[in-house]
Write a protein that binds this DNA or RNA. Structure first.
Lengths: 161, 161
DNA sequence: TATTGTTATACTCTATAACTATA
DNA sequence: TATAGTTATAGAGTATAACAATA
């Protein structure tokens, strides 16, 4: 009997951490097909939802350093997906907008997200999936997490498999 | 109406990623009180459960490079939490064992994990928690995840707040 | 003097590859 | 020749701090 102690951890907290890392890695794989990484998709989603914001606003929303937003926006702008427009009222900052190409890509990104949702929840029936979402939302609320903002922009999953 | 598109993503996959990152960050905070990081706790748990294994075995279990295990084991050994014993049958490899102090720390670690589980699922009743665990396990099974092994050892959460 | 964006720098983490000692 | 462990090196990713332009 080599086992000194019980079975491996199987609580909800561990499963959430395990599945969260898995879901993130799978998402990274999927968006790579659009030549994007998860952080870039977050930027596209945020600008698509609220155009005209500054880079500072983006940085605080994402919870990252402003210098990182520079690099992020640089990459997307050079690909013609978004554009910086100098604000007329305060010429220190930019207003960030998606280009038409960026909006088309965002549309494809939403399809990828749907496929991702489908794949991750493949084990569940529609009703079970709804119950899961309800439970998860309640945990997220109680834990003080903001809808649509996840704290994982600080790290990218390396190649896992 | 600044919103070009609908609400923020609220599907199960996104919530899993968000909550997973959150649970991981909270866990890291908690084990820091024992002067450990999540990767080190994984090592302690694995050795505690299956003593005598080699560093290579540990590396493949954790899915990390062997060179990283060296540093990980170095740190824990220098604190007197585990020891390397040269194998009598094959003197190339070590057999890893927890010291008594390591076993005591592992006991405290299990208490921390319990508290963590309690905190993360504070929004749910006991029955709801059971249903959640059931749903999550079925997803983990279907996704091919191994019990007790999570792919998040590659990254540590930076200071989040 | 404070703020937006930028650049330069340093730091952390990790894997890869070269090395040793055993087999 | 192959394998366990170690060390050295290089790369990726990020934040911090210094800087320029504008307010």
């Amino acid at each position: 009997m080599p086992d000194t102690a019980g079975p491996p951890p199987l609580g909800a907290a561990f499963l959430l951490a395990q599945l969260g890392a898995h879901a993130t890695a799978r998402y990274a794989e999927k968006v790579a097909s659009l030549d994007l990484d998860p952080a870039q998709t977050g930027v596209l989603h945020l600008i698509g939802r609220q155009p005209g914001g500054s880079q500072q606003a983006l940085a605080s929303r994402l919870g990252v350093a402003a210098s990182r937003v520079v690099a992020l926006v640089d990459g997307l702008e050079s690909r013609g997906l978004l554009e910086r427009r100098r604000s007329a009222t305060d010429r220190r900052n930019y207003e960030l907008h998606l280009t038409e190409q960026g909006q088309r890509l965002l549309g494809q990104l939403r399809l990828v997200a749907q496929a991702h949702e489908h794949d991750i929840t493949a084990a569940l029936s529609g009703e079970e999936r709804s119950r899961l979402v309800d439970l998860l939302r309640r945990i997220a609320d109680q834990q003080g997490l903001l809808p649509g903002v996840h704290p994982g922009y600080r790290r990218l999953p390396a190649r896992n498999r």
